[in-house]
Write a protein that binds this DNA or RNA. Structure first.
Lengths: 207, 207
DNA sequence: GTCTATACTTCGATAGAC
DNA sequence: GTCTATCGAAGTATAGAC
């Protein structure tokens, strides 16, 4: 595992080591010395690759943003939704899992969750891309489902909240409350998302 | 407002100033010097009142814990619930507001939310007292409501989840995402809790 | 691109006079 | 109980030799 003596460029090693340490201890609690030690170089050498410590975090965030920018629901998936409401759990859960499962992403989710409270760039990204945009997308989907009389005529905005906020809660629970404690989060999350979707579906389906 | 020249004991001043600064910037970002400056004494004098910086945080947490220890649902409230399900929003929301509204509590909620990820004592408290115990209480309530055929026979545990986790999400949203941004959170929270409770109620009520 | 060496800053905490 | 004075540790970052 500690096979970092490979020919991986130093800049990439710094990125990966920082990603690992930041996700475990938080940005402030990690020193440049510690990163350097783990990479196997002196701390001054870090500055040959990144302007300063903050720049490493920025690089990590930028990587994550570009990864997730392409993460919105594809059109075909949305079309499937409008055939039968029973599918919406599958589609929602797939979107959820997709956002989490990339190997580096899980660590970045943890960093995001930790730094949320004092990093403006991260907080803005979270609010708009991770909350508002998906929420608006789900609202549109439910609006169409109501128009097609597939579900009861509830307020689509409220329904979007009711459906979507649970995923936000799960992320909070996992990355803040249970990190490094819960081994197979994905299985548990899947089961709970499934229960949740079923509950919502029962609430709005037309008998 | 800056009327701290009153005869308030120094130890209390240190407590209040720390509470204020920790809630704004997080524990690590506040220095003992800063606290001392704000109180109006030298930093060495701090140590006449608290063993070290950590001890100030401990005092704050202990204060909060004892405040909330008496915060569980009183019996009369629970009895009211079992008369008519329409009341359960009122009861739940009252319990929620009660936990938040004490003047010092709001700042402590912020500190709790920030330090959750690297303070074991805080995390354990959050998990047991703030999550598991209320969840279990709601599960019992719903179980009784089902026995009395007041609501549909859904899984009471899942229903408790569905009902209660919205409050947890609201706290996360307010204290992490919107702190110092949203002025009248209580009004918005009340409205959204109301929407949520209505949604849940519609989902499980017997037609 | 990495090294040694070092400058500079800030931090938590203590000793001892008053 | 507050002050002055100070310590040691740890942090970020830079200069210059190799």
């Amino acid at each position: 595992m500690k096979n970092q003596t490979t020919k991986k460029p130093t800049k990439e090693k710094i990125f990966d080591v920082s990603l690992d340490l930041f996700s475990k201890k938080g940005f402030d609690a990690v020193s440049v010395r510690e990163i350097a030690r783990e990479v196997g170089i002196r701390e001054s050498s870090i500055y040959n690759h990144y302007k300063n410590k903050e720049a490493i975090l920025d690089a990590i965030i930028d990587f994550f943003m570009s990864e997730l920018a392409s993460g919105s629901l594809p059109e075909e998936e949305m079309e499937k939704l409008l055939e039968t409401p029973e599918l919406f759990f599958e589609v929602g859960a797939r979107a959820f899992i997709k956002r989490m499962s990339a190997p580096k992403n899980e660590k970045i989710w943890r960093i995001i969750s930790i730094e949320l409270y004092h990093n403006d760039k991260i907080r803005d990204f979270y609010q708009t891309v991770l909350l508002e945009e998906p929420l608006k997308a789900w609202e549109e989907i439910f609006k169409k489902m109501i128009e097609k009389k597939m579900i009861k005529p509830v307020d689509p905005k409220i329904l979007a909240y009711e459906y979507f906020y649970f995923a936000v809660y799960l992320i909070f629970e996992y990355f803040i409350l249970k990190y490094e404690e819960d081994e197979n989060f994905m299985n548990v999350a899947w089961k709970r998302l499934s229960n949740h979707a079923e509950f919502i579906l029962d609430a709005v389906k037309i008998d």
